[in-house]
Simulated assay, not measured.
Amino acid sequence: MNQIDELINISIEAGKAILGYYDEEIKVTRKEDDSPLTKADLASHNVIVNSLKELTPDTPIISEESGIPAYEERTKWRSYWLVDPLDGTKEFIKKNGEFTVNIALMEEGEPVIGVVHIPAKKITYIGQKSIGSHKIDQEGNKTRILSSRPDKDQPVTIVSSRSHGASDTEDRLEEMGFKVGESVAAGSSLKFCLVAEGVADIYPRFGPTMEWDTAAGDAVFRYSGKDEARYSPITYNKESMKNGEFVIGHE
């Protein structure tokens, strides 16, 4: 079994661990930054971290639930895993199905493999440098997904956060030369995937995110170009690991 298949299986097992808590009353605690934390986050974290340690014992792992290693240590890493065990905890709490398991392999500051698994829908997106991006449906059928740069002369479809919408998004995009025709709401890193498969043209994010929120979905987007990788403005292994504002898909 190759590495990408191993990662898909790990994400599926993590998804099963999450769904083990989905039908019961979800108890929520708060982390230091006031973001929500559930038993499902920790269960998924344990599945992924233990599995990755077995798969690649010498490769460091950063998970949202494991804390951030010192910058001085991280800058020496050539490669590492970047994981969000349950992206879209707010969507999980709302039980709307739009939460994901995110696993990315980082090399030299960019995501070279990304797996985004949607446990409630049994759908998985994968992006891999040099191979491209694919979608695996509920029956296990694997299909190449492609995206292209939007035409500024035509109204664009944007994907917006279901839980973190910005009121001035359309105005700011118009300043960039885009007229918004339609807006599709989605949770978690699904937003990257919807751009990668051409359901939406642009994903603007004018609020803060962390690197583990974006890495796997960013890989799915980057490698959805037909002939070459798509441009992404997001950089990784920053000192704070906090992302600034970004717009995905406009270039």
Rank of each mutant, 00 (worst) to 15 (best):
N50M: 11
A104W: 02
N96E: 15
K129F: 13
H117S: 13
L55Y: 04
S66R: 04
A70V: 08
H45E: 12
I68F: 06
P36Q: 13
I123V: 14
N96L: 12
Y80V: 05
T29D: 11
V112A: 03
K95E: 04
K31A: 04
T75F: 01
R30F: 15
Q128W: 02
N46L: 05
H117V: 06
A70T: 07
S79L: 06
L52D: 00
D58W: 02
S79G: 11
I126P: 01
S79P: 05
I68N: 07
N50W: 04
H45V: 03
E108F: 12
L42F: 04
I103D: 03
T38S: 12
H117R: 08
S79W: 07
S133W: 00
T59H: 09
G67Q: 08
I118Q: 13
S63L: 08
T100V: 11
S51E: 12
Y71H: 09
K39Y: 15
N102G: 07
W77Y: 10
I131M: 09
R78C: 10
D87V: 01
V49T: 01
A104G: 10
D87G: 01
V115T: 02
G114F: 02
K27Q: 13
L52C: 02
E32Y: 14
G127A: 10
V101C: 11
P69E: 04
K121L: 14
L42K: 11
L37A: 04
H45L: 04
D87L: 01
T100H: 01
G88Q: 12
K76V: 09
F99G: 04
F99Y: 13
I131Q: 10
H45R: 05
E98K: 08
A40L: 09
G132K: 06
E107S: 13
I93V: 15
E65P: 06
H117Y: 12
P111D: 05
S133M: 02
D41S: 10
K95W: 07
E98R: 08
I118W: 00
Y125L: 03
I68H: 01
K94H: 14
E54W: 02
R30H: 15
A40H: 08
A40W: 03
K122L: 11
S133D: 01
V47W: 01
K122G: 05
D87P: 00
K129Q: 14
S44L: 08
M106R: 03
W77L: 09
D33M: 13
K53N: 15
N102S: 11
E64R: 03
G127K: 03
P69G: 06
Q128C: 10
I26R: 10
E108N: 15
E110A: 12
E65F: 05
I48N: 06
Y22V: 03
E32R: 15
G97Q: 11
I113R: 03
L55Q: 05
S35E: 14
E64M: 05
I123A: 09
W77P: 04
A120W: 01
D87N: 06
I62E: 01
V28S: 15
H45F: 07
T29S: 13
